[in-house]
């Protein structure tokens, strides 16, 4: 279903349908995360991927046209590049441990250590929250700072344009006054 949705996103010309289908894609991957028992990630995917980005894409869509212009160039070379990259990725997964394998690096390194120390050190039942906010507090602080920087960047880029236009309007009366003098 994921593949079918991705294919539909590529084929359709209507950008509105593309935005909606990418929302559907996010929901499907959220379901995938739920089946993998990563409920927190699924939650984030559903809220961010399907919720907010769809709305922001719709906001962008209302600034541009509704249909994409067909590209005149042949899509043969990009197709080859995508195939090679996909094959390389699949080849890479061959080395990965089997799903749920107890010997996987994720199960043998710090994971068991956190799980053993957490109940008496942090005392918070949700392990993801405990690791995120307590053991990995610096990382989360960095993430928050990144989100903050992104927000500031968008505000500077988009709201700054209006400010500049207002500034461009201002000098004109000044100029006129000089001529009058």
């Amino acid at each position: 279903m994921l593949a079918a949705t991705a294919f539909a996103v590529i084929r359709t010309r209507s950008l509105f349908a593309t935005v909606m289908l990418s929302g559907v894609f996010s929901f499907l991957s959220a379901l995938l995360f739920v089946t993998l028992d990563a409920v927190d990630v699924a939650f984030t995917e559903a809220a961010v991927g399907a919720g907010i980005s769809t709305v922001l894409m719709l906001g962008t869509l209302s600034l541009t046209s509704r249909f994409e212009t067909p590209s005149p160039r042949s899509s043969f070379v990009p197709f080859i590049v995508v195939c090679v990259t996909g094959a390389a990725l699949v080849y890479g997964t061959l080395d990965m441990p089997n799903f749920g394998s107890p010997d996987a690096p994720a199960q043998t390194h710090v994971g068991p250590d956190y799980l053993a120390r957490m109940p008496h050190e942090v005392g918070v039942p949700n392990a993801v929250t405990a690791i995120l906010a307590s053991y990995r507090g610096f990382d989360t602080l960095g993430e928050t700072a990144v989100v903050f920087a992104a927000g500031i960047g968008v505000m500077l880029l988009i709201s700054g344009l209006r400010r500049r236009r207002r500034d461009e309007d201002l000098p004109e009366p000044d100029h006129d006054r000089k001529e009058q003098v």
Binding site: D40, A42, A47, N126, V128, L132
Partner: peptide, 18 residues
């Protein structure tokens, strides 16, 4: 309730904003 169930600041912020 992020301490006890899935969720936390990031998800809650996004839901609030939506």
């Amino acid at each position: 309730h992020g301490d006890y169930s899935p969720g936390g600041g990031f998800q809650a912020g996004v839901i609030m904003a939506s």
